[in-house]
C-alpha cells in the first residue's frame, strides 16, 4: 500500500467558540477522490481550507508526504491546486487575462494552452470578453479551465459544480474522474451525488462524523 500523500491526524476545528469537528483522521493517496459532504455549517469549507494550508487547525496536524504541512509551504504550493468558493477571477479582466495571471502565479503556461483550456470548458469565443459580462456559470468555467492546464497532482475544490449546467457538471465529473485515474487526487465539497466516480472514490460525511 502506498504511503498517504496527504494525511490529517486527529484534526479539530473550532470557529467562533463552536467545535465544527473533532478528532478527524483522513488519508488521501494517489488516485483517490474524497467527497466531503454534510449539512450547511458542518465545516466542509473549513476542512478544505485546513487541508490547503490556508487555515490552521485548533488541534491536530496535517502532513504532506509524511512532513508537517506548515513546514513546507513551497512543496505544498507546487503540489496543490486550490479553487475556493470564489475562484480568484477579476470581473474587469478578460477570461484570458485572468488565466494568464492565475497560471503565472503557479505554473506559467502558454497562450495556446490557455486557449485550448478555455475551449475545453466551452468558452470558445469568450476569451477576450471581460468576465463581469459572463454569466455565473461561465465565470465558474473560467476558474475551472485551470484544471485543463498543466495542473499539480492534488486538487482541492470547494463547491466546483455551483452554477454549472447539466452538461458542464457531467464534463467536470468525467474530468475529475480521469484525473484520479491518472494518479491525481481530488478533494471536493458538493451537495449533489456524483454521477461518475473513480475507483478510489470515498465520501466523508461531516454531519455524521460529528
Amino acid at each position: 500500500m502506498p504511503s498517504p500523500f496527504l494525511e490529517a491526524l486527529s484534526l479539530t476545528c473550532e470557529r467562533d467558540w463552536r467545535v465544527l469537528f473533532e478528532g478527524l483522521d483522513l488519508e488521501i493517496r494517489a488516485g483517490e477522490m474524497l467527497q466531503v459532504s454534510g449539512p450547511n455549517g458542518s465545516g466542509k469549507t473549513s476542512l478544505l481550507r485546513l487541508l490547503g494550508g490556508l487555515m490552521q487547525p485548533t488541534q491536530g496536524e496535517i502532513r504532506l508526504n509524511g512532513k508537517a504541512l506548515l513546514a513546507q509551504r513551497a512543496e505544498v504550493a507546487r503540489n496543490l491546486l486550490w479553487i475556493g468558493h470564489a475562484a480568484g477571477i477579476k470581473g474587469l479582466l478578460t477570461a484570458e487575462e485572468n488565466l494568464v495571471w492565475l497560471c503565472a502565479l503557479q505554473r506559467p503556461s502558454t497562450r495556446d494552452a490557455i486557449w485550448t483550456a478555455l475551449d475545453a470548458v466551452g468558452l470558445r469565443g469568450f476569451e477576450d470578453v471581460p468576465c463581469h459580462t459572463l454569466s455565473a456559470g461561465q465565470q465558474r468555467r473560467v476558474g475551472l479551465a485551470r484544471l485543463h492546464l498543466d495542473a499539480p497532482p492534488l486538487w482541492i475544490l470547494d463547491e466546483p459544480f455551483t452554477a454549472l449546467d447539466k452538461l458542464g457538471v457531467a464534463q467536470l465529473e468525467r474530468h475529475l474522474a480521469e484525473h484520479c485515474e491518472r494518479g491525481g487526487m481530488v478533494v471536493l465539497t458538493t451537495h449533489h451525488t456524483l454521477g461518475e466516480r473513480p475507483a478510489g472514490y470515498r465520501e466523508l460525511d461531516l454531519g455524521r462524523a460529528a
Partner: peptide, 17 residues
C-alpha cells in the same frame, strides 16, 4: 477588499511565491 472577496488573496497565499 476586492482581492479578498473574489478569492484572489487565497490564490496568493497558496502560490509558491
Amino acid at each position: 477588499r476586492g482581492d479578498y472577496e473574489d478569492g484572489s488573496l487565497e490564490q496568493w497565499v497558496v502560490s509558491p511565491h
